[in-house]
Amino acid sequence: TETREFDNEEEARKEAERLRRKGQDVQIRKKGNRWELRRT
């Protein structure tokens, strides 16, 4: 599992969408005042 953190939700969602188009399974969750993007 690979995780990346983003400062805002929009960036996290854009990156998640990009990875999903490549066929990756991605989850986003709020972590304090940041957003965590998890690739499984």
Rank of each mutant, 00 (worst) to 15 (best):
R20A: 07
L19N: 01
R4S: 08
E10F: 11
K14E: 13
R18F: 09
R4V: 13
L37T: 06
Q24F: 15
E15G: 02
R21E: 09
K14W: 11
E9T: 01
E17R: 11
R38S: 13
E36I: 12
R21S: 11
R13T: 10
K30A: 06
R29A: 11
R29N: 09
T3M: 11
Q27V: 14
N33G: 08
N33K: 05
R20S: 06
E36S: 01
T40V: 14
E15W: 10
E36W: 06
T40D: 07
D25P: 09
A16H: 04
N8A: 04
E17I: 10
T1Y: 15
K22F: 12
Q27G: 05
F6E: 00
R20I: 07
R4P: 05
Q24G: 06
I28T: 02
R38Q: 12
E5N: 07
E15S: 03
R20N: 04
K14V: 11
T3L: 12
K30Y: 04
E9F: 15
A16M: 12
R20W: 09
R13G: 04
R29C: 15
R29T: 13
K22H: 11
E36T: 04
E2Q: 11
T1H: 13
K22N: 13
Q24S: 07
E5Q: 09
R34I: 12
E10Y: 11
G23I: 01
R20P: 00
E10P: 05
K14M: 12
D7K: 06
R20M: 07
E15H: 07
K31D: 03
V26R: 01
G23R: 02
R38P: 00
T3S: 11
R21D: 07
K31S: 08
K30V: 05
N33M: 05
I28V: 13
E5G: 06
L37I: 11
R21C: 15
K14R: 12
K31N: 12
G32L: 02
R34G: 08
Q24K: 06
L37E: 04
G23L: 02
E2M: 13
E10W: 13
W35I: 01
R13W: 11
R18E: 08
E9H: 07
R39Y: 15
G23V: 01
L37C: 11
N8L: 06
F6S: 01
I28H: 01
R18C: 14
G32R: 02
R34Y: 08
R34H: 12
A16P: 00
W35E: 01
W35R: 00
Q24D: 09
K14N: 10
G23K: 03
D25T: 13
A12G: 02
R39W: 15
G32W: 00
L37S: 03
E11S: 07
W35F: 04
Q24E: 13
T40H: 09
A12W: 01
K31A: 08
E11Y: 03
R20E: 03
K30Q: 08
Q24C: 15
Q24R: 05
K30H: 04
E9P: 06
K22T: 12
R38W: 13
A16E: 04
E2L: 13
R34L: 08
E9V: 09
K14F: 10
V26N: 02
E5I: 14
V26G: 02
R38I: 15
E2G: 11
R29P: 02
R29M: 13
T3N: 09
R18K: 10
E17P: 01
R39I: 15
V26E: 00
T1L: 12
R18Y: 09
K14H: 10
N8C: 08
T1F: 14
R18M: 10
E11Q: 07
F6V: 02
G32C: 04
W35Y: 04
N8E: 05
T3A: 10
I28S: 01
E36N: 00
K31H: 09
A12Y: 01
E5A: 08
Q27S: 11
N33A: 05
K31L: 10
L37H: 01
K31R: 11
R4W: 15
D25F: 14
N33R: 04
T3D: 07
T40Y: 10
E17H: 10
L37R: 02
E36M: 05
K22A: 13
N8K: 05
E11L: 06
A12P: 01
T40R: 12
E17T: 09
A12Q: 00
R34K: 12
L19I: 04
K14P: 00
G32Y: 00
K22L: 15
E9A: 06
R34F: 08
R21A: 13
R34S: 07
I28N: 01
R34C: 14
Q24M: 14
E17G: 07
T40W: 10
R13Y: 12
N33Q: 05
E36P: 03
V26D: 01
E2S: 11
T1S: 12
Q27T: 13
D25H: 14
I28F: 03
E11G: 04
F6N: 00
F6P: 01
T3Q: 08
T40M: 13
T3E: 07
A16R: 04
D7Y: 07
E11W: 03
V26H: 03
K31I: 14
G32D: 06
T40S: 10
Q27P: 00
D25N: 13
Q24I: 15
E5Y: 15
D7T: 07
V26M: 06
L19Q: 04
Q24Y: 15
R29I: 15
E11D: 14
R34E: 03
R18H: 08
R4A: 09
R39T: 15
K31G: 02
E2W: 15
E2D: 11
R39V: 15
K22G: 09
E15Y: 08
T40G: 09
